[in-house]
Design a protein around this nucleic acid. Structure first.
Lengths: 345, 345
DNA sequence: CTGAAAGCGCTAACAC
DNA sequence: GTGTTAGCGCTTTCAG
């Protein structure tokens, strides 16, 4: 089955060479095309003998089913669309991994795309994905354009809003309250007896809500304002370092606890603290968010807010699967979170 | 366009409600179905007046094209499959991001899946992806099962092997020599005057090849052996810390340069060194691999091997696009790499 | 257990 | 410019 190297069809022509079809396989096995279809989708509906012949024909021809045709005919694509703000952020990709692993067990495949933080771009990607006729779609967050909502509803498939929570989901919602994570962090810091606070946050809407949760509760309880540094939506170690540097150099921060909207930012703060010879947590204390793998292994180990991303992905998958089976399930799942006390605060 | 909440069709029934088709849109606009198709795919072939009417009908009905049907009829799916060992490893996802961004400009969508490090699992995923009839496929690395190669060749589409290099690619290859990165790191360390070396590596085949490159050259030049610690294929900060701990505690390493198969492992080594009060690079020096974003911002800043992952993704995309246009292009692109000297070695 | 017929919703010729 | 006719490669339904 050789293929000409470097001699593809021109763009106008279809890319694939004429592929082997069920028809061909059937002819070779001496049966009709439908029988091949049955052999593949429900082998017990076919006699052992013909099944064997068909499998042989498949092996000989190197037949690969055309899922496009299958999906068109059956109106079921076995595809689940998933949209995340960033492909390179483990916070999302670890969630998608667990979603993906669970859906794979049900023979569903994930179609993943990156939306950035702009709802308009998300809307565009929703349209593209919907055109592939997924059997379900997973979105990150609860803010979408009006038009996106219309399209989603019109698609008539399960829609999961992941990684945030609302009382009025489009369809299903699996997440937690971002502002509550911030408030919980503030309570923790207060309990620990810190008497000054600052915040470093990524610039996306949810990160800002986490920060506000922290700052609001802190201010309510202490009357103090909380100086803050805000960076781009994708937080980096470098931003964390810069954040601490600015807090110290321009806000005159000398001591206290710093709330970071992600573990990566927190890691950056730890790094800058080490570079400056500041002691953690004696001089400055640090609270992260996410409980990424590295959080337990930074020096000092990072105190952070754990959200179980695997569980989020899993619950989303379970909700979708339940829907496929026609089960009536609660539309919103609040997975909550917890504070993991380690050494940095 | 309301949809019943929590009242989906049972699993046996098709998931989507009967969707609006071009037929419907056409009827509403007072034209035939083909005209709608033209209006969407090549608007200038349609009179401004009917175009307007069609667009209105589309807006009214909330029509979303069925790309499944389109792909089946046109034999072009506008889909590019991409398989990576890990979804959560930035090394791969940053490459895929640039691939994805570039392909999107050509209106191609990426179908991404995670293969792990087992060729058999990769083979299975190749089959699944091929059944969706992508217009091209991108694989990570150059080692694939014989059966996978057969299927790939039989598909008659461009196949890119990314992130490694070989003289005999299945079709196209964009990457660099892993063993050479290790040798280059060893040369750098020798030039800097280090007189002892060790290595920490992830357990996957390519990481081991990087380590061997380092160790082999080091031994050739100095006659010294290179003690090493090998971990699981997915390297973590924790592994880096453990690695240094073992090198020190059980191999009795007191000084020298440590080659790490990834920046994450190297970061772990820096962390453990800080925790133990070891000076970097005076006591132990560290060389990473990958030049991730954080590498320039660790403390001390990480000396590492830079591979331009965006460029790799971009070149892969360009090669695919060139193929689509029928251009005759060189099958293998060696992107090389460079040593970035910072403070850790 | 197997087959024939009728689409799924679209694009690709080919007419007019 | 627009419509008609055939499929694309499957699944579904109905026969037998």
């Amino acid at each position: 089955m050789p293929v000409a190297r470097n001699a593809p069809p021109p763009s106008e022509a279809p890319p694939g060479q004429r592929a082997v079809t069920m028809e061909t396989v059937g002819r070779l096995a001496g049966v009709s095309q439908v029988t091949v279809s049955r052999a593949l989708n429900d082998p017990k509906k076919v006699s052992p003998e013909t099944l064997r012949k068909i499998q042989e024909a498949i092996a000989v021809t190197g037949y690969v089913p055309n899922a496009l045709a299958g999906a068109l005919a059956s109106r079921r694509s076995k595809l689940v669309a998933a949209l995340v703000p960033s492909l390179t952020n483990v916070v999302y990709s670890s969630m998608i991994k667990s979603l993906s692993d669970t859906m794979r067990d049900g023979h569903y495949q994930i179609m993943l795309s990156e939306t950035g933080t702009d709802p308009a771009q998300e809307e565009e990607l929703i349209a593209t994905h919907l055109s592939r006729r997924p059997d379900a779609i997973v979105l990150t967050g609860i803010h979408h354009t009006a038009n996106a909502r219309r399209m989603l509803l019109g698609a008539g498939i399960p829609v999961v809003e992941l990684w945030d929570i609302t009382d009025s989901p489009i369809d299903l919602c699996v997440g937690f309250s971002h502002s509550e994570t911030g408030r919980a962090a503030a309570r923790y810091a207060l309990d620990r007896g810190y008497d000054a606070a600052a915040a470093i946050s990524a610039g996306d809407e949810r990160a800002l809500r986490r920060m506000s949760g922290f700052a609001d509760l802190w201010t309510e309880r202490t009357g103090q304002s909380v100086p803050s540094e805000v960076f781009a939506p994708s937080s980096t170690l470098a931003d964390g370092r810069t954040g601490l540097a600015r807090l110290v150099d321009t806000h005159g921060l000398r001591r206290g606890v710093i709330h970071c909207s992600s573990d990566v930012l927190a890691h950056g703060v730890l790094t800058e603290a080490a570079a400056r010879g500041l002691r953690v947590p004696e001089d400055i204390a640090v609270i992260g968010f996410g409980d990424q793998d590295m959080a337990a292994h930074t020096y000092p180990a990072l105190t952070t807010v754990r959200v179980d991303r695997s569980e989020l992905g899993l619950q989303a998958a379970k909700a979708i699967l339940a829907r496929f089976e026609g089960k009536d399930i609660p539309p919103v799942t609040d997975l909550s979170f917890s504070i993991i006390a380690r050494d940095s605060a």
